[in-house]
Design a binder for these strands. Structure first.
Lengths: 214, 214
DNA sequence: TATTCTTTTTGCCAAATGGCAAGTGCCTTG
DNA sequence: CAAGGCACTTGCCATTTGGCAAAAAGAATA
């Protein structure tokens, strides 16, 4: 899968697959960042030196409500979901996070961030993570980094708002059609019940709706 | 109303009511900003020198879909609403903006921002506005201004997201109860039809719901 | 105060969605 | 291959919400 059989690696080689894999995730992150602003080689090296790759297993928690978040993460593979419990104790999916999204705890670096919600992996996820400290160092070192961040945040922001508010004006069928149009890559990877709670309908209704569509 | 009859002003006096009114709006803005970070006198003066007060009449547009936004605004009095038209041509209220909120067109300064939605005044509104150019000058001059902004943006962001996503998991009655709890100051100032479209229900349903509640 | 315009409430009925529980299909595990 | 566990589907019926149009209530204006 990774490397596509182009090269054979020997263990302990500095190009050992695991190392290569690491670079691959990081490369994706850099590529993403460069969409929002330019960075020179030195700056890119700094970022690379600070990032660390992690993998989350299915259903593994990345955030937990009430527990301090100490990392900034970038998702390169997999799907996460953010959810909370409403006053009836039901688990409600607030939104999904798919590939190539930054996960900025609370958006500000110097503050301690304690989410009121949970963030867990729907599928196996691969991420690049930075400690808050390293992230702050990047922020202090790279001129223009904050501008890049602001752009990314603004983009995420408007995405989320518009997705959400359009949902509410639609009936259940329209919501689902909208969902598969906006998240074509998620439909087949995310359990029905999560999609249903995201759309604000019951799982059985969604199942029926799905039947009428095809 | 303003000034509360404490003083009598003479026309052309530098303390003439209109001048005083101006300062009052600006004062509110400064006060708001200071919640998010410190500024020295000189910095405050710079901001004051750049801001301009405007008043919007009822139903007057502040943004128009497809038209470039050239201002940053801060609402000190009144209520605005952001709305768009769905594919059935219905007007959907995306959210309300009440007192003490910054209206940052697209969040980034140097870009041209062309909204896809409308922003208009529900009541008479008083605002402090800055041209993008002046705003940029403030940004370039005041160290830490961007940090303050980021905090404000982050706050607005999480407010909006959580308000929206909680709505979708509730039935119509809960949505309304939630609304009056979260926007106690709006309920009596905003026409029923706007609230209904914000909550994703019809006006007549909302009217019926309101009857059952009290 | 009468007139008109706008906003909100209602009645009636249809359509959409929920609740619950059982059924089906698929995958895992022994 | 059998047994159990999930995830999804379905049936049946209750409840909620919508659609439409008319009535009522409030506001604005002359």
């Amino acid at each position: 899968m990774r490397g596509d059989g182009k090269k054979a690696f020997l263990p302990n080689d500095k190009f050992h697959p695991s190392r290569y894999l690491y670079l691959y995730q990081m490369e994706t992150f850099i590529e993403y960042i460069l969409q929002f602003g330019n960075l020179n080689k030195q700056q890119i090296e700094l970022i690379k030196s600070k990032g660390r790759e992690i993998e989350l297993q299915k259903d593994e928690l990345y955030w937990e409500a009430g527990k301090t978040v100490r990392q900034i993460g970038f998702l390169t593979e997999g799907v996460l979901r953010v959810y909370y419990y409403n006053n009836k104790g039901e688990e409600i999916t607030r939104y999904f996070i798919d590939e190539n999204h930054l996960i900025l705890s609370g958006n500000t670096i110097d503050e301690i961030y304690t989410p009121a919600e949970y963030l867990s992996a729907i599928t196996i996820c691969k991420m690049v993570v930075f400690s808050k400290q390293d992230w702050k160092e990047i922020l202090d070192t790279i001129v223009g980094w904050d501008t890049i961040l602001q752009k990314i945040i603004a983009k995420h922001h408007s995405e989320k708002i518009s997705r959400r508010s359009e949902l509410i004006a639609q009936d259940a069928t329209e919501r689902y059609l909208d969902f598969i149009q906006k998240f074509p890559t998620l439909v087949n990877r995310v359990p029905l019940s999560y999609i249903a709670s995201y759309l604000g309908i019951t799982q059985s209704s969604l199942s029926r709706i799905r039947k009428t569509i095809r």
